Computed example of a mutant assay.
Amino acid sequence: AGTPSNCFDFAFAASKMAIEHMTPVMLLTDGFLANGSEPWLIQNMNDLPAIQVNKAKEGEKYLPYKRDAEKLIRSWAIPGTPGMEHRIGGLEKMDITGTVSYVPENHEVMTHNRDQKVKRIANYIPEQTVYGDHDADLLVIGWGGTQGHLISAVRELREAGHKIALAHFNYINPLPKNTGEVLGKFKKLVVCEINLGQFANYLKMNHPKYDYLQYNKIQGLPFTVAELKNHFIKLMEE
Rank of each mutant, 00 (worst) to 15 (best):
E58N: 12
E60I: 05
K61Q: 11
K61A: 14
K61P: 02
Y62G: 03
L63Q: 06
L63T: 04
P64F: 02
Y65D: 03
Y65W: 13
Y65H: 13
R67V: 14
R67P: 00
R67F: 01
D68R: 02
D68G: 02
D68C: 09
D68E: 13
A69P: 00
K71E: 02
L72Y: 12
I73A: 07
R74Y: 03
R74I: 07
R74D: 02
S75R: 11
P79I: 07
G83N: 13
G83E: 09
E85P: 02
H86R: 09
R87L: 15
I88N: 03
I88E: 08
I88D: 03
G89Y: 06
L91I: 10
K93M: 15
K93L: 15
M94D: 06
M94G: 06
M94I: 05
D95V: 06
I96D: 01
T97Q: 10
G98W: 01
V100M: 14
S101K: 01
V103N: 12
P104M: 11
E105S: 15
E108N: 12
E108S: 15
V109S: 07
V109F: 14
M110Q: 10
M110R: 11
T111E: 13
N113E: 04
R114L: 09
D115I: 05
Q116I: 11
K117P: 02
V118N: 03
V118P: 01
R120N: 05
N123T: 05
N123L: 12
I125R: 04
P126E: 07
E127R: 11
Q128P: 00
T129L: 14
Y131A: 09
G132N: 01
H134Y: 05
H134S: 08
D135N: 15
D137M: 02
D137W: 01
L138F: 09
L138M: 08
I141S: 00
I141L: 14
G142V: 06
T146C: 14
H149F: 11
H149L: 10
L150V: 05
L150F: 06
L150M: 07
S152I: 07
S152K: 15
A153Q: 02
V154Q: 01
E156A: 12
R158K: 15
G161N: 10
G161D: 07
K163W: 10
I164W: 02
I164V: 15
A165L: 13
A165K: 00
A167S: 15
H168V: 01
H168I: 03
F169P: 01
F169S: 00
F169L: 13
F169C: 05
F169I: 04
N170M: 05
N173W: 12
L175F: 12
L175A: 04
K177H: 05
N178R: 09
N178Y: 09
N178W: 07
T179H: 08
T179R: 09
T179S: 14
E181C: 04
V182Q: 01
L183C: 11
L183E: 08
G184Q: 10
K185W: 00
K187G: 08
K187N: 14
K188G: 03
K188Q: 13
C192H: 02
C192M: 12
